[in-house]
Structure formats: C-alpha cells, structure tokens
Design a protein around this nucleic acid. Structure first.
Lengths: 154, 154
DNA sequence: CAGCGTTACGGGTATCGTAAGCATG
DNA sequence: CATGCTTACGATACCCGTAACGCTG
C-alpha cells in the first residue's frame, strides 16, 4: 500500500475515469491501471467494477476512498512538518577570515555547510584590520565549530 | 517518504540502536542504514546524530517521531478496514449439478470464484434425485450467475 | 471506428543482502 | 579487538512508458 498507489486510487475514484485521472497525475493510463491492479490484487479487494468501457467504484471502493484520503492527508502533514523544521534552520552568517584560511580551509567547509543547511546564507569579507573578530554570540560560534572543527586543530 | 522508511525510522528512533532495530524488522543493518539515509537526504533533514559508535535522535528527529507514528497508525487503520470488508465476503455455497455440468463447466468457474473470494467455501453434491434445486434465495443465485454466466448461455 | 481499460515487454531505478571499511571504547 | 554505522557492489524486484490487444457503443 504505497502512498503513490493511494494517490492514484483517489484520483481515479474521484472522477471515475482512468484516462483523465492519469493525465491529472502526469502519468500514462497504463501506469494508473497497473497501480490500481496492484492495490486490488495485493489486498484481495475489488475497488472498481469494469463496466462496459468505463469503470465504477464498488461498494468497498466507495468505503475505502475516505480512508485513503485520510492517510494521504496525515502523510502530507508529516511531510509539511519536516519541511517546516528544515526551513526553520535559516539565517545569515558573515565571515571574516585571514587570506590563508579563507583561501585554503574555508571553501570546502562552506560547500559542505551549504549542502546541509541550504537556508543559511553565507557571505565573506576580507579582513580590513589586522585583528580578527567575530560579531556573533559565542553559542553560535560553538555550533559552527562543532560541525566543522577548527582550522589548526585547536 | 515510503511507509517502509517510516517503519524503519520509528523502530530505530525508539531504541536508538540501528542493529537491534534492524533485527526487529527482519532486515540487515545496512538496509536500515540505507533507509534512514534515503529518508534524510530526500527531505534534506538530519534525523540522527552519529555520535561515537552509536546514534541519537536530533531535535528534528524527536519532533518527527510522533508524526511518523501517526501516519503509520492511520495507514494501518485503512488497511484493517480493507481486510475487514474482504473478510465480510464469506460464507458457504453448496452446489448441486448434473454430471455433465459438474464435470465440464463447473471446475474452471469454481477455481476463478475461489480466487476472487477466498472467504467463501464451496462444496459439491452429486444429484441424488433427477430434479435439480437450489437451496438459496434467488438474490444470491443472481449474484453468482452475474459473475460467471449461465452454462448454456441462457 | 473511436474511446477506454488491460496486458506484454523493455528499460530505468530503488532496495536488499554480502562484504569490506572506519571509527570508537 | 569487539561493537556499531557507513559505503561499495552485484542481484533482484518494482515501477514506468510504449505498443499491441480486447471490448463496447
């Protein structure tokens, strides 16, 4: 019982028309047919009556429709929650580093960091003054260092 | 986001131990690892911290756990409902037929019928008396005939 | 014959298990 | 060195789309 199968079933059941449902789902009609067949045979249930050149929901199919919708809705909710927490991790980090570090050590680290947290923007500045300083709370620095280590191993 | 992946995630998250979770799920530990990896990379989320030689739920993972459980529960409910309606279609059919029909026409039909409705038991009796009769309400006979047609096309 | 669903078949992708690789205590 | 997760890799199974088929109005 794949979510994909449920999506196909819901679409086909709602319009009681396989070809149009397949078009809606951006798939071939044979694919939709196969999905329905798989759903039916695996669970030993007949969801549609093949009547004439069309199809019609059976009683079991009609009863199953709200169930399928509920499952899909719950799953969508879970996925949305995951997306939400992902997008929650965002912000803007400004880096100031010496030429050596910025040239040899940072690039790979920044690439890896971007891959993990696409929501965080990173910008770099050349050190205008001799003294390096960080404009962030130490906690944030700690988090970043924890993920990527410290250049000289200290 | 396959239900299978969710099952793996829930098991691993509950015991925070991949090997034991894999054993519980009757799969190799590498398979479980791959499932978790797929779940994480596809949704751009980190669900577990690989700490030392073990794993621990991240904050997002901990938040996602009840969601995953809810999805699985809802899906199980839908599947149970399907099973229930299938088992509803059950009973016992006793057939009485002439030798000719019972020998040539019935066997294939009975096989097909059993495949569709495993819950229905079918037993056959040789006709002791000349007159064939049916001990069922006509409605039931109608249903059966509708599915399989009538021997002589009448 | 035109519309609609099913079936057969080839290609792509995902998943699994085996086994080797790394890291940790 | 024993434990535990990850990665590489070959095999298997699944899913999809194309095309041919069967059926109906």
């Amino acid at each position: 019982m794949t979510p994909e199968q449920l999506r196909v079933f819901v679409a086909v059941a709602e319009m009681e028309h396989m070809t149009r449902a397949a078009q809606t789902l951006n798939m071939t009609q044979s694919t939709a047919s196969a999905a329905i067949s798989a759903l039916e045979s695996r669970h030993q249930v007949i969801l549609f009556d093949r009547i004439g050149r069309g199809i019609a929901l059976t009683e079991e199919g009609r009863a199953f429709l709200p169930e399928a919708r509920a499952v899909l809705a719950r799953l969508a909710q879970a996925e949305a929650m995951l997306l939400e927490t992902r997008d929650l991790i965002q912000g803007h980090i400004r880096l100031i580093a010496s030429q050596t570090i910025a040239g040899y050590w940072l690039p790979a680290k920044i690439a890896a960091f971007r891959k993990l947290y696409p929501g965080i923007m990173i910008s770099r500045r050349r050190p205008v003054i001799q003294t390096l300083h960080c404009s962030f709370p130490e906690a944030a620095v700690g988090h970043i260092v924890q993920h990527f280590g410290w250049p000289e191993g200290g």
